[in-house]
């Protein structure tokens, strides 16, 4: 890594950190467009965050320090993950061989503390959400790891920025079907982990039907700002893995590449908004089927890339 590149990471990280609320806005605008409404202003998520940070928090008497630590640790885990995932360029700040394992476990750390904070309130609604979150999280781990395996085999690397980097470009030409399956699996993982339709519906006000939103019912003030921002950041990070795997950019630094990535992420947000407008949430006992389907897709992709390798 050259010194110039190291310096360039600073503006890049700033853009990456500023981007997530905007993507949420894109999803909201898309859904509003499908519904024939105008939708909230583009900058509404930023206003919301600013408002929440200014407020003070109300706590339940049942809660302990874990309730307050939960959002901080979850957001810290996601911000650390942001140093491992290439978002705008083709490389990451702190990537190393095997960083996919750390990435998966950082997501798990965030999940653990979100769930513990939810359970700390003693509310049965939040317990229900926590139970769903860990269940679907556990089930989507194999799908995520098998998708990583496919890209590791294709690029002969265990570093995320190389696995979803330019080396994937020739792979699309020779093992297109496998890559399509992987992208499908990654999309399901994204929808599960980021709690979007058809796994979870972030828009309803019926606590019984939600997963993520019901877990954070009791959070307020700056902690709720952390959670809201964390959810958007998680969507951005997992989304960029998906976007990078689906559309690998060629080697070398290109001025056009970062703006293009922003547009691609915007496109992904539009796609997610369109899915949310076009279909309803699955019944909860159908969700494991969806995730198992994603696992099977990645498993088939593994077989495809491995078979090609022997030839």
């Amino acid at each position: 890594m050259t010194a110039v590149r190291a310096v360039l990471f600073v503006p890049e990280m700033l853009v990456v950190l500023a981007l997530p609320p905007l993507l949420m806005s894109v999803i909201a605008k898309t859904k509003a467009w499908f519904g024939g409404r105008v939708g909230p202003p583009w900058l509404q998520p930023y206003f919301d965050l600013h408002k929440l940070i200014q407020k003070n928090a109300v706590y339940s008497k049942t809660t302990t320090w874990i309730f307050r630590a939960g959002p901080i640790i979850s957001l810290a885990a996601l911000l650390t993950a942001a140093t491992l995932i290439p978002v705008l360029s083709n490389d990451s700040l702190l990537g190393f061989s095997g960083d996919i394992i750390l990435l998966a476990y950082l997501l798990a750390l965030g999940r653990m503390f979100t769930v513990l904070a939810a359970m700390d309130t003693g509310s049965s609604f939040e317990g229900m959400g926590a139970s769903r979150e860990v269940t679907f999280g556990a089930m989507s781990e194999p799908a995520l790891f098998l998708a990583f395996v496919v890209m590791a085999v294709a690029t002969k690397s265990l570093q995320l920025s190389e696995m979803i980097g330019p080396k994937l470009l020739p792979e699309w030409q020779i093992a297109g079907p496998a890559m399509i399956l992987v992208v499908g699996a990654l999309l399901v993982v994204l929808l599960t982990e980021a709690c979007r339709v058809p796994v979870d519906d972030p828009a309803t006000h019926l606590e019984l039907t939600m997963i993520h939103e019901v877990m954070v019912l009791d959070h307020s003030g700056p902690e709720f700002a952390f959670i809201t921002y964390g959810a958007a950041l998680k969507f951005t990070l997992l989304g960029s893995i998906l976007v990078h795997a689906a559309i690998p950019h060629p080697e070398g630094f290109n001025v056009l590449s970062p703006p293009l990535r922003v547009l691609e992420l915007g496109g992904l947000a539009v796609l997610v908004g369109a899915i949310e407008s076009a279909m309803a949430r699955f019944r909860l006992n159908r969700v494991p089927m969806l995730i198992a389907g994603a696992t099977v897709l990645s498993a088939i992709a593994v077989v495809l890339v491995l078979m090609r390798r022997t030839v």
């Binding site: 003070n56 339940s60 049942t62 309130t121 509310s123 009791d218």
Partner: peptide
């Protein structure tokens, strides 16, 4: 979180939202 204008203050303690 501590340095927020009202960050250190607790707005109130109540029951869990049921």
């Amino acid at each position: 979180r501590r340095r927020m204008p009202l960050g250190g203050a607790v707005g109130g303690m109540g029951g869990t939202w049921g």
